[in-house]
Amino acid sequence: MSKFIRQLLPFATLTLLIAALSALEPDTFLTAENFLNVLSRSSVNGIIAMGMTAVIISGGIDLSVGSMMALAGMVGAGVMLKVGGPDAGGAAMVVGTGVGIGTGLLCGLLNGALITKLKLPPFIVTLGTMSAFRGTSYIINNSKMYDVPTYTFLGQANVLGVPVSVLILALVVLAGFFVLRYTPLGRYTYAIGSNREAAFHAGVNVDRNLIAIYGMTGLFVGLASMIQMSRTISAQPTAGISLELDIIAAVVIGGASLSGGRGTVIGTIVGTLLISFLRNGCTLLGISTNIQLVVIGAIIIGAVALDQLARSKAEAT
């Protein structure tokens, strides 16, 4: 009963926010165009947040996603330009995209391997790779960005009136939902986060599953990176600075527990949209970005505080 209410909380907040903004700014906010716009802006964060959700449920954390996004972009774009020249054509774009996503995957697997094989805390490992990935993405082109003027499909094209990035986001959300709910990998993710020793004694191959989880996160980061690159038709070594904090915030607002064992895909996507609509609303209302930061900070603390409150109520009654 009250567990239900707890899970509804982020939803309710999101609905309230949308209702309020619709009332305040009916002409600019409540339009299909604006909604699609917000969704497509959410796509990069939303996709990465799916991976982060699994990582956090498993009791870990991935601080390197922002740097990883920059690195995947730089490597993908670099290869694309090598293969196809400044006006890279279809084939070069496909190769570059594949390499970019693959880079993300490799980075994620590296995180997973370091965490499990060296038995280091995820916080430390990804703090380290956060720095290393960032450094590498600067080194690749001497701190300069790459322009990829022809690379517009993922970030700017529409299919049947819907942005491609939004379609990809939808697919990734479905995939995340499916994995966490219907596959052993998802189940083991919850078990490892809840009690790693117990999972191990129940025959769960903890290391392999953790590597898969971090690898999957890397894959999603690679994908998100390609969308980001296409949106700005460039790859920038400075992309995604402090992105990890936004992502973690979205996951936590969605009800996941940083101590592991708890979290849902639906919660995370609601958390992501909450942050995006808030930003969008503030912009439309002419509220400065500085104030937006303060508001988002308050929401993070408020959401988790409410969640805790509902939880202790549920336990005490």
Partner: peptide, 20 residues
């Protein structure tokens, strides 16, 4: 508590964990 159960997960998860 230490090596047996995942306490915050549903009972059913704990029963099927090694048996999927």
């Amino acid at each position: 508590k230490r090596t047996g159960l995942c306490l915050e997960l549903p009972c059913s998860y704990n029963i099927t964990l090694p048996n999927l």
